[in-house]
């Protein structure tokens, strides 16, 4: 329970810092809005409703992926300022608690963005779920966690590298391919509803397995990253 308290402490600290500035959420919101608008200019959503339905799941996740990458880099920059990270290295608390708190905070930020962007999607692309819409309540958090947990880890990994803004997407995108594949396919299946309703379950299961495996790996290896030199 002690560990849980430490995680909560880190999480609350990050939420409080974000509440004061609201930089991350505002930035992500506007960025993902821009991506959605650019995509709706690139093709004609009103003219091709069927195509729109088929690709809007992919567009939603691409917007969220790009938006979260912009923020994940910043989430550790906060710790580097005033050498907070050096202080974190010396505290007796397990380093994975710091990581878990940070990842949960990022999950919260991206979830807020999703809650705002989803209605905009319905308006701009005129989509509504033809399949089991409630499944999205499982797909969205699992997919977001898959992006955020690895993203937070690689952002920490790239902290002291040169070109770290470039390094994060470079590492995150290839590693996330299975997750992106599952979340996009599951979302598309739910939105189009033209496959048999069991099929999204496969993708949700795969996504859950991906989440469990990589959360474990991140927690195990974070200490190595934090004390890399």
């Amino acid at each position: 329970m002690n560990y849980l308290r430490q995680v909560t402490r880190h999480l609350l600290k990050d939420l409080q810092l974000e509440w004061r500035s609201r930089d991350a959420i505002n930035g992500m919101l506007f960025f993902s809005l821009l991506v959605v608008v650019v995509f709706s200019i690139a093709f004609d959503p009103t003219g091709n409703p069927t195509t729109t339905r088929q690709i809007s799941g992919g567009i939603l996740w691409i917007a969220l992926l790009f938006a979260s990458v912009t923020t994940l880099n910043q989430s550790w920059a906060r710790e580097v300022r005033n050498s907070v990270l050096d202080a974190q290295r010396m505290v007796p608390a397990p380093p994975s608690a710091l990581f878990l708190g940070k990842a949960l905070a990022n999950l919260a930020f991206v979830t807020v963005v999703e809650l705002v962007i989803a209605p905009l999607f319905v308006i701009f692309f005129n989509v509504h779920a033809l399949g089991n819409g409630w499944m999205l309540t499982a797909i969205m958090p699992l997919g977001t966690w898959a992006l955020v947990v690895n993203g937070t880890f690689f952002a920490a990994l790239g902290l002291r590298a040169k070109n770290r803004e470039l390094l994060l997407p470079l590492l995150l995108f290839p590693i996330s391919v299975p997750a992106i594949l599952s979340m996009v396919n599951a979302t598309t299946d739910v939105l189009t509803g033209d496959v048999d309703p069991i099929q999204p379950y496969f993708w949700i299961k795969l996504l859950a397995a991906y989440d469990i495996i990589f959360t474990t790996v991140c927690l195990l290896l974070f200490e190595t990253i934090l004390h890399a030199e």
């Binding site: 690895n150 990994l157 790239g158 002291r160 590298a161 040169k162 070109n163 770290r164 470039l166 390094l167 590492l171 290839p174 590693i175 990589f214 790996v217 290896l221 190595t224 990253i225 890399a228 030199e229």
Partner: peptide
């Protein structure tokens, strides 16, 4: 990107495990 020092090697090893 992460330089040829011991720190860079550690980060690379972690990435390799992920891959």
């Amino acid at each position: 990107f992460s330089g040829g020092n011991d720190e860079g090697h550690t980060l690379a090893a972690v990435i390799s495990v992920f891959a």
